[in-house]
Design a protein around this nucleic acid. Structure first.
Lengths: 200, 200
DNA sequence: ACGTGTGGTTAACGCACGTTTACGCAGGGT
DNA sequence: ACCCTGCGTAAACGTGCGTTAACCACACGT
């Protein structure tokens, strides 16, 4: 290992982001080891100098994403003053993430099933904790929402924000603003999360 | 072919819905031809009595979904009186579809990339027409929204509603009501779709 | 100069899996 | 009686692909 290991990581990371792009476009099984190699200028089995297996790439990729999401979410919520501010920050954080790394978002949504059992458990645990951050923040902002409702609403907002890879007709800032407003409207419009309401 | 061919279809349809369930859970490439056979009580290559290939199954499945979605959407919009009513009906239609067939929704989202080029073109064309129905309805209801904004909003609402397979903590009616309210709030809250607004 | 580790190469292996083939068997129209 | 068609089976085929093996070369500390 080097002292700061800031440079040492480049090759692994380069491979990971190329693989993420390919996995997002063609699916895990739709991408060959040779394709990933070609994408970074080396060919085929050279990847095994950097990763134990193809599954290990996906595992590392998805745990890294989940950790980044959770950490960022926690930090934003802690730094916020007041629940509404925390919710706005959370929305903004997720929107930025989705807009900056659409490939990672796509892979995380589409390829959970291709993980090793051990990796999947790890990723799911991280995702659950991230959802809990949202659930708590939502319930602090909208006290009438019970827990199952808040959880379902959180998933729904993830779906809304993660729709980004399918759109891309707006420029980044307009898209960020639109998604943020839609997410907040869906969560905080009066009565929307009230479990006592019947079908409108 | 039989006269009414109502019974003749059962076997094909039985296979298709079993395959949809499996594709949704494990992904197209994660499911073997033998797995699909086993799911309907026959084993392995017997499927080739009913489908030309594994790709053909996915193709037929996805075009059927896309056609159902488009047809239902068109019918609801035509039958509605007034744009707001049409939008409510559209939301309700998509919500019902997503809640009744979560496997189909999952497959359509995750496995577009595994289609034949010809099939993919067909499906994409149907999807585009469905999006257009939404875009027009949204713009009639929210005149301030320009077309790219309405299109991005439509995709976002699809993501919101299609989040259903990841939740399932609420019973069907509560879930339907929640998703409908969130979708309508995201679309119709004052100013949300106004392209002139900057980041909040 | 020299071993050593790091990151490449090409060739080969082995297996999973989609597809094909050859075969069997009930049923119903002539 | 008979054969044709529909639907099933089991075995064989071929190949794509993840992984391993054997080999090579440059960088570099001593």
């Amino acid at each position: 290992m080097s002292s700061t290991d800031g440079v040492k990581q480049t090759r692994r990371d380069q491979i990971l982001s190329a693989a993420a792009e390919l996995f997002a476009r063609h699916g895990f099984h739709g991408v060959g080891i040779d394709d990933i190699g070609a994408a970074v200028g080396i060919s085929g089995p050279a990847l095994y100098r950097h990763f134990r297996s193809k599954d290990a790439m996906l595992g590392e990729m998805l745990t890294a994403i989940s950790e980044r999401l959770l950490d960022g979410g926690l930090r934003r919520v802690e730094a916020a003053n007041g629940p509404e501010h925390a919710l706005r920050e959370l929305v903004r954080w997720h929107v930025d993430f989705a807009l900056d790394d659409p490939a990672l978002i796509t892979v995380q949504i589409r390829n959970l099933a291709n993980l090793t059992d051990a990796d999947r458990r790890r990723v799911r645990a991280l995702q659950r904790r991230y959802v809990e951050v949202w659930v708590e923040t939502i319930r602090r902002t909208v006290p009438r929402a019970d827990e199952p409702t808040a959880r379902a609403a959180a998933h729904a907002v993830f779906g809304l924000i993660n729709s980004t890879p399918h759109s891309a007709h707006l420029d980044r800032e307009q898209m960020a603003a639109l998604l943020s407003r839609m997410a907040l409207a869906a969560l905080t419009t009066a009565g929307v999360l009230d479990p006592a309401l019947a079908t409108p």
